[in-house]
């Protein structure tokens, strides 16, 4: 059963045609006028049918476009959340990798004082064994005893100072390692954290003969995430080592801290390397942007830096680079909100 939406109009048209047939006696003027009216109404109904049809088609198109839009939007949102999850896991992997590098650095750094203490102890043992032989032979002269006493004094001093140094290093590494693996927020002395972090990176820097200067007002206490800050510095240093400094060319790294406002800390990390090419400066914080893909660059180092600075540290990061070197200016709240 087909139903005409314009049924009523068609009926009116039929009726008007039959009315028109009964107007034979009316003046020609009237008949012509009614003819015109009937024709105009018929045209109007046809026009309405056309308009409804066109309008329906447009509305159907609009509706399918809306559905398509909603579908694509859902797809894009899904893709975005997948990407975020992937980035998150890459960031976690990168954190673990840098913790591995830290452990390697720690082993290297502690090796020196432990090695010195070991050789001193072994020297002391040798000297003592010799003294024991002389003692058992009842043949210790005043000169030998003086020399032995000097050896014991120097040796035990060296063992003591190197063991203290090793203990201090282990203490600071422990803090850095704990901070790196936890996102904990705590109050910390900024100067001490900077020094501990740079000490943990020491082996990488010293091997190549780079010079590190830290200028930080003493007693500057922050209430923030020291682990994030330490990771940021670590990534800066790795970038300076890999990108800024030419091999066999000793460079200079300076970290300057000041307070533009009482509730703000400005940390300027600068190296004396060759700078970042102008065409790359806009992209260095983009995830996966790297100029060293072939040699193991992930392109995540500065992206992680950016996320840490703008995320947990609640601050801003600005790049200043020229052929004379690169500087990153971090502006952070003393106390994160």
């Amino acid at each position: 059963m087909s139903f005409d939406l314009f049924d009523a109009e068609e009926k009116v048209l039929e009726q008007s045609d039959s009315l028109r047939g009964r107007l034979t006696d009316a003046p020609e003027e009237v008949r012509k006028g009614v003819d015109l009216l009937i024709e105009a109404f018929g045209r109007s109904v046809r026009e309405q049918r056309r308009l409804v049809k066109v309008s329906d088609r447009l509305q159907a198109q609009l509706s399918s476009l809306n559905h398509e839009l909603a579908r694509r939007r859902a797809e894009a949102e899904q893709a975005l959340s997948d990407l975020k999850a992937a980035q998150e896991s890459l960031v976690q992997a990168e954190k673990l990798a840098s913790l591995g590098a830290l452990v390697g650095g720690v082993a290297h750094e502690i090796n020196t004082p432990v090695g010195i203490a070991l050789s001193c102890a072994s020297h002391l043992a040798d000297s003592t064994a010799q003294m024991r032989r002389l003692y058992e032979a009842d043949d210790i002269g005043a000169d030998e005893f003086d020399r032995y006493m000097a050896t014991v004094t120097d040796g035990s001093d060296l063992i003591l100072s190197n063991c203290r140094r090793a203990a201090a290093l282990i203490g600071s590494f422990k803090q850095v390692a704990v901070d790196r693996t936890s996102a904990e927020r705590r109050r910390f002395d900024l100067g001490a954290t900077l020094n501990e972090t740079m000490a943990s990176l020491g082996p990488n820097l010293r091997q190549a003969g780079h010079e590190v200067t830290i200028e930080c007002p003493s007693g500057l206490v922050m209430d923030s995430h020291p682990g994030a800050l330490s990771q940021v510095l670590g990534n800066f240093v790795m970038n300076s080592l890999v990108h800024a400094f030419e091999p066999d060319q000793p460079g200079r790294i300076t970290i300057r801290v000041d307070q533009p406002q009482p509730d703000q800390v400005r940390i300027v990390y600068a190296d004396s390397g060759k700078g970042i090419p102008a065409q790359n400066r806009g992209r260095i914080f983009d995830p996966f942007f790297t100029t060293r893909r072939g040699s193991g660059g992930t392109g995540l180092g500065l992206h992680i830096v950016y996320n840490l600075v703008t995320g947990p540290l609640a601050g801003t990061i600005v790049l200043e680079s020229s052929t004379l070197g690169t500087a990153f200016v971090l502006t952070l709240p003393v106390s994160v909100p």
Partner: peptide, 15 residues
């Protein structure tokens, strides 16, 4: 209500 054929949907209602 945006059927392909409105008279098919509303026809039974009119009847």
């Amino acid at each position: 209500s945006y059927p392909e054929d409105a008279s098919a949907v509303f026809g039974p209602v009119f009847v």
